[in-house]
Design a protein around this nucleic acid. Structure first.
Lengths: 261, 261
DNA sequence: AGATTAAGTTTCACATAATGGAACCACTAG
DNA sequence: CTAGTGGTTCCATTATGTGAAACTTAATCT
């Protein structure tokens, strides 16, 4: 299962190892990793040692397993604060969530995948990391399609090669062709729908967040369930969502990090 | 100053660069980094290139600045889920927060610093990453002292060398000696206080979370303000907090990640 | 303009640091 | 005792990272 050889030398390889550990989603043994990595035993071993030393991984003595380390959590806090739209967009999202009473997602594109960076739900309190940091498929989520529709062709093509086109529900657009024609429609109307394409009963309306120079910064979606509302009702909110997206884009534009000298 | 030379070869150095970028807390220019790093220009340059390639950093063309990349957010999500107490402790913390109406923090020790991995406040909704991932000093926070008090001497000594002992408030224990005698007391009574040692007006009562074999897994604290409650009132809750901490410890003990083969 | 400095990028001979086959160790099972 | 499994260490070979210096822009000054 192609963990493709990386071109970034030693550091790249070490980071691949990190990803391998992350991919399992649970603590993993040396031999498990060895089995699926192209690295020889000694090499993999050294990487694990180094990463553990660096607190990028933690080693559980008792069980002999490696897991992602807490240093990542620390770094991510800063990453999230300084290179995601979330801190900037917070107040706008809050407002939208309260007014609509529906769940709002803020997402960005990361290597062809949708990365959720924030989530707000007027009713239930936020579930910390359980949503921020989560990734999802781009081809069958509202936010994913909204972003793809407004990205340059070249970037879209590249992203398409990374999609699995797994068919989650009968509504899933499971071929590049279907998806591309949908993107046309989205581009025309300015917002995307998720018509239970990812999960049955879950629908959403999403709009892209686009910078003044036309770059897709992220996307915003309002999510609900089929037994609470309808697509038409969500579409009625599209203008409101678009408005919020625009305000976020403007905020992002004018935002300068405070210069300190 | 003093980004100590790391012994973990190329990978370690690259990760140091990541930390340097993180330390600024804002996007940073090549020359800024160069100024404060021991690396020669070309070397630093290559690291930045590599890390950017790997999406560990993002490069802002327009401003010529580097910031932590989104890949970290993704990794952190997994890290948080698989190697922090947070997912496990969630329900217990929720309960404690609701019952007490006060803010509850869950923290772990990371390289001599307190790393907050979760936070719950019965009143106001959670602020996502703004608390999880945040770090604080060990020597002047309730959770920090609670953990230190029950760690093996050797580990405490190591941690002490990493403390700045900056004097935040008149109450701050600003020498290793003062701290050590405080740790004695904490060990005896089983819980630690923060008597406005970090921030004026902020007090808390914290207890360690200790595994069956005596290892400190983390700490739990109940935080409030001097004009809402008193230390005595908080101490009255100590039993309740301890109870929760024990239940979390038990849960952590019996928890096995699902085996898949 | 032309000269001057600063900021960022590329080059290349050199030495360090990564590599990985093989040997080794510690268990466990037969 | 022997074979097997899972993990760790060695070490000669060489790929990789290193960093001084040269180079390219892009501002700033005279």
């Amino acid at each position: 299962m192609g963990q493709e050889a990386n071109s970034d030398g030693t550091v790249g390889k070490a980071l691949d190892v990190l990803d391998m550990v992350a991919a399992r989603g649970k603590p993993v043994r040396f031999s498990d990793l060895l089995a699926q990595s192209a690295f020889p035993k000694a090499t993999l071993y050294r990487f694990l040692q180094t990463l553990t030393n660096q607190s990028m991984l933690t080693y559980d003595e008792d069980r002999g397993t490696y897991a992602l380390g807490v240093r990542l959590v620390r770094l991510a806090h800063t990453a999230w604060a300084q290179s995601s739209l979330a801190p900037l967009a917070r107040s706008y999202i809050d407002e939208l969530a309260v007014e609509s009473g529906e769940t709002i997602h803020l997402a960005q594109m990361d290597q062809g995948q949708v990365l959720y960076v924030d989530k707000r739900n007027a009713a239930t309190p936020v579930e910390m990391f359980s949503s921020a940091g989560k990734v999802g498929p781009a081809y069958c989520t509202g936010v994913g399609k909204a972003m793809l529709a407004f990205m340059p062709d070249e970037a879209v093509e590249k992203a398409l090669t990374r999609q699995s086109f797994h068919c989650f529900t009968p509504q899933t657009l499971d071929t590049p062709a279907k998806l591309k024609s949908e993107l046309q429609v989205i581009r025309a109307q300015g917002h995307a729908f998720d018509r239970e394409e990812h999960e049955p009963g879950i629908i959403c309306c999403a709009v892209p967040i686009i910078s003044r120079v036309g770059r897709v910064l992220g996307a915003l979606s309002m999510t609900s369930t089929t037994h609470r509302t309808t697509l038409d009702a969500l579409e009625a909110q599209a203008g409101r969502i678009k408005d919020t997206a625009e305000r976020i884009a403007t905020a992002a534009e004018s935002w300068r990090f405070p210069e300190q000298d």
